Computed example of a mutant assay.
Amino acid sequence: MISISVIIVNYNAKYFLKNCLDSVLSSDMIEQVEIIVVDNNSSDGSSEMLHKEFPQVICLQNSENAGFSRANNRGVAIAKGDYILILNPDTVISETTLSEMLHFSKSQSDFGAAGVQFMDGSGKFLPESKRNFPNLKVAGAKLLGYSKYYYANHIQKETTEKIDILTGAFMFIKRSVYQEVGGFDEDFFMYGEDIDLSYRITKAGYHNHYVGSCKVLHFKGESTIKDKFYLTNFYGALSIFYKKHFPNNKALYMLIDALINAIISIKSISAPGASKAKEKFDSWVYLGDDDQFFEKLKLRFDASKGFKRRAIEDEIKEVEIIFFDSSFISYQDIIKSISNPLIQKVKKRIICRDHSFYLGSDASDERGEVVDL
């Protein structure tokens, strides 16, 4: 019996997708889970990797980049689970994430959807984990670069509470609710569709929840090129939202449009360049138990500055980088360790289970690093 259908929309994020799938397949309830990947015409070999390495995953191939909303709706259309998890490919979940979310959802009356506490690759809390409804005050301040009202800062990050807006990188939704409200609005190509869906869920009489006890890694923005196309979609999503839900308040969306057009015309955001992999570190730690692979790392990096451990220890906070071997350490422990404040300033990288590459990021506004091994 399928309880949960995990829907992942992928666009040129092959390595992060592979690591994400490894984490989902490690779920303690994987026998009740189906995974559906909708690929938006990637050119990085994602589809070939999926067919070769993950034959148990259902892969739907789009002939063009259909956008986030349309691709997710296509995946949900064939889903069998009572619950849907909309999941980004640049995320890592723990072995208990799905069972925790399923247990929580079944304990709630009028459950609509739920989100989690996101952390970036450095272990820093991501405030978009919990957001307020974007009324004029909230949206206007956000457009002007002031985010105090945009994020639900009144909710403590470790608590569980009802919330207005969830994030599309992880949305755990009752399938019947998703179908009742019509799924993602395909007028949104990318960005804003999660605001719209969250709003329609609450309008239909259901509740959205923030589950702060459940932590998920999000290597934010890995597949996003922040050019004018990005700006138009990111900021333009608010305009689509207001025109859809408040069609008679022309003064409201005219003001929003004016702000958006001004921002797009004056704001230049370039895509961050890919990080150049370092070949030497001041000191490094391999957390794992594979002696042969450790020797390979010693040949790759400075052998005199690297050492092997089987668990996090206090002195590790003094090193430059930690390599977490996901074939040895559970994803739950990796997520817990990355969020450990003792190693907040230490670089962290996750080694893929087949030891073919490692990945990670050092900040939410930087592209993730992928290094072949």
Rank of each mutant, 00 (worst) to 15 (best):
I2T: 15
I4P: 03
S5D: 02
K18E: 14
K18I: 08
C20S: 15
S26Q: 03
S26K: 04
Q32W: 05
V33L: 09
I35P: 03
M49Q: 10
H51W: 05
Q56H: 06
I58E: 12
N65A: 12
R70A: 15
A79H: 01
I86G: 09
I86Q: 14
N88Y: 08
L98D: 12
S99Y: 03
H103A: 15
D110R: 05
A113S: 14
G123W: 10
F125K: 05
F125Q: 08
F133E: 11
L136R: 09
G140L: 13
G140Q: 13
A141H: 11
L144H: 06
G145Y: 08
S147E: 15
A152V: 04
N153W: 00
H154M: 05
H154R: 02
E161H: 15
F170L: 01
F170Y: 07
F170V: 01
F172H: 00
I173S: 01
S176V: 07
Y178G: 10
E186I: 11
M190I: 14
E193M: 13
I195G: 04
I195C: 08
S198G: 09
Y199P: 07
I201S: 05
G205D: 13
Y210K: 02
G212D: 10
L217G: 01
H218R: 02
F219H: 07
E222A: 09
Y235H: 09
A237V: 00
S239D: 14
K243F: 11
H245K: 10
H245Y: 15
F246C: 10
P247H: 13
N248R: 08
Y253E: 04
I256E: 10
N261G: 11
S265E: 14
I269H: 01
G273E: 13
S275C: 10
S283M: 03
V285M: 01
Y286S: 09
Y286T: 05
D291Q: 12
L299I: 13
F301M: 00
A303L: 06
S304C: 06
S304M: 07
F307K: 12
R309V: 04
E313D: 07
E318P: 00
F324L: 10
S326M: 01
I335E: 10
I338D: 06
N340G: 10
N340E: 14
I350T: 11
C352E: 12
D354Q: 02
S356A: 14
S361K: 13
A363W: 02
A363Q: 04
S364H: 11
V370P: 01
D372Q: 12
L373I: 15
